[in-house]
Each structure stands twice: as C-alpha cells, then as structure tokens.
Amino acid sequence: MVDLNLKAEPFLGHYSKGFKGVDLREIDDNSLVSLALPLGEESKAIKAIEAAFGIPVPDVGHSALAKNGAMRLLRLGRDQLFVVFLYEGMDSEPYIADKLAGAVYSTDQSHVWVTLEISGPSARAALERICPIDLNPDAFAIHQLARTNMEHLGTIIIRTAPDTYLLMSASSSAGSFLHAVETSIENVA
C-alpha cells in the first residue's frame, strides 16, 4: 500500500502582508465548532456551555474570550454559537461535544471558514469601503461581532482590539474574499 503523507495546507498559504497603516494576515491555527441550542431548552444549554468552558455566554452580537485567551464564544443568533479555539487535533467536534454531554447540537466547521485578521490605524477606514456595519468605536465595541456580507460574500466580523478585527468567510471562496479585502485596503492605503 502506498504510504501517503498528506499535510493540510492553510487556505491562503499563511498569507501575511503589510499595507500603509494596515496589516492583513491569515489566522490558520484555530478550530471551529458550531453549537445549536435546542428549541425550548436554550437556558439549559447555556448553563452547560458556561459550566464546560468557564466563559459567560455572551448576548447575540457579542463574543466572549476565555481568561487564557485560547477560546472565544461567538453568539451569532439566539440559538446559535460558534466556539473558536486553539486546537491541534482533527477531532475538535468530539472534543467539544464530550464536554457538553448532549445539551447542544454540535458540528465541526473548522475547515469551512477562512479567517483574516486586519489591524492597524487605517484598518477601520479600509473596512468602511466593504463592510455595511457601523464600525464607529462607540457603535461597535471590542468583542462585539456581526454576521453580514462584504462584496456579496457572507462574513462574520469581530472587533478583538481597538484597531483589530477578525473577518471570517467561507473557505470555498477564500481567494475571492482576500481579493475583495485587499482591494478595499488599496483604495485607502
């Protein structure tokens, strides 16, 4: 039998580039598990998540970071959360599901999303060209998030620091998404 030695490559090949006032790089060391809260049992599911991870479940449109920074809960809707966490193995869904003991429905979404981090003093100006969300610091606080679309591509945007945002979009259109973001940056850089 042929001894295959396959190694997963990141969608954008560890992309990292500096622009005038903006840095853009691919984040590729996170796993992502989607949690759906069962209808009518949302409060039980939320208690189970808080007990398992020690992170208060945020309100819709907000995210919450673990104390050690290795896990972030994204509350995308009333009945949906994403768990984004540093994890090496390929079994991220069973790893999360075991801790929640059937209180939620979970699916592995690790290889479905591509993540870009955009940062720097001109990051907000660059995003204003493609992001329909009000990113004014008063309207979009740190850890706030929104699922929206950028250049018709569905995108989750999370503000992680004063001038830093994570952008998550479908990995199947990772190249097009990167092109859209680069173009928007070049329009202001």
């Binding site: 819709v60 449109g61 809707g77 009333r78 329909p132 009000d134 929104a146 929206t148 679309n149």
Partner: peptide
C-alpha cells in the same frame, strides 16, 4: 430587535 440597524440587502 436583537442586532440593531441593518441594511435591507442582508
């Protein structure tokens, strides 16, 4: 009601 003002294109 949960997310605030959003563009109708969404």
């Amino acid at each position: 009601p949960l997310l605030g003002p959003r563009d109708a294109a969404e």
